[in-house]
């Protein structure tokens, strides 16, 4: 039972980081990018490949995943960020599908649908940390906390203010002398780098990686977390992540048969989204806002 609880905390930590990274580009900057899962996947594959083929460890892989995902996002941004609104959403969603196809078919690199096995558990100062142990929980929570502190600082910096201004009115931001394209590209690159870290964390936890990491439902869950918590609000993404994961686990707690857990989970997600849109369209964090 305690292992189940630990695994829940670890998964929540990984998703909280991923959701917060998405909150930077989608929430704060207003980029309707549905391909964020690509950066998560690129980070995860970077860690998996570097570990299994070149023996890179956990900490090096975190850095490498951030770097690779960031570089990948720079190219991705140059191609897509001239688009906005629904056009950007469709183009990036298409890109996520393409990423999935590439991961499935580039067998020499990714081992295709069979996936990559034999990934090492995290090793810190020579100590191997086993999955679902207390030490593992501490390690992951610490990493996620540290990265979230960086993100918190970024959200509340003058650069964060510029991103919020772009979300409000991009033309007005240009009229205030801002190179909005550059700012949006950096927002995407940073957002991707943090998503890459989340991907590396996932890889070193699951110890197995296959192309389902790019699957459409993952994107929907991610959007759900940020929207339910509150787009652009730092605490909103964390609140949204905890809520969505808790609600996703409810069918298991209630004791639904395995065959309907997936479907009932989707119904609950839908109810959560509709409820949020109905009562707190700006997100559930507004419950805690000072009037």
């Amino acid at each position: 039972m305690i292992e189940y609880f630990f695994s829940l905390v670890i998964i929540t930590a990984i998703w909280a980081l991923l959701a917060q990274s998405y909150n930077l580009s989608f929430g704060l900057t207003g980029l309707f990018n549905l391909g964020h899962i690509i950066f998560y996947g690129v980070g995860a594959y970077t860690a998996a490949i570097l570990n299994t083929k070149y023996g890179w460890g956990f900490l090096e892989n975190i850095g490498a995943a951030a770097l690779f995902s960031g570089i990948f996002a720079a190219g991705f941004g140059l191609l897509t960020l001239r688009l906005s609104g629904h056009y950007l959403a469709i183009a990036t969603l298409g890109a996520a599908m393409i990423a999935s196809v590439i991961a499935t078919n580039w067998i020499s690199l990714t081992n295709g649908p069979l996936g990559i096995r034999g990934i090492d558990e995290p090793e810190i100062f020579g100590i191997t940390i086993e999955a679902d142990s207390l030490l593992f929980v501490l390690l992951y929570v610490t990493v996620v906390l540290l990265v979230n502190i960086l993100l918190y600082k970024l959200f509340h910096s003058p650069f964060g203010r510029l991103l919020r201004a772009i979300k409000d009115d991009e033309i007005a931001a240009q009229a205030a002398g801002k190179n909005t394209f550059k700012a949006k590209t950096w927002s995407l690159i940073l957002s991707a780098a943090f998503a890459g870290i989340a991907g590396a964390l996932y890889t070193h936890y699951r110890l197995f990686l296959d192309p389902t990491i790019f699957a459409l439902p993952e994107i929907i869950v991610l959007v759900l977390m940020v929207v339910v918590g509150g787009r652009g609000n730092f605490w909103g993404a964390i609140l949204g992540t905890i809520l969505v994961i808790f609600i996703g686990e409810l069918p298991r707690f209630i004791g639904f048969p395995d065959s309907i857990i997936g479907a009932s989970r989707n119904i609950m997600y839908a109810a959560l989204l509709i409820g949020t849109m109905f009562w707190k369209p700006k997100g559930l964090f507004t419950f805690f806002e000072k009037k």
Binding site: K153, L154, S157, P158, F159, G160, R161, L162, A165, A173, A176, G177, K178, N179, A183, W186, L190
Partner: peptide
């Protein structure tokens, strides 16, 4: 503030120095 200065337009400068 947004149009007053450009010194914090790059994220890393904005990150390091925040005396406004």
């Amino acid at each position: 503030l947004l149009s007053l200065s450009w010194k914090y337009d790059s994220w890393w400068k904005s990150f390091l120095l925040q005396d406004e």
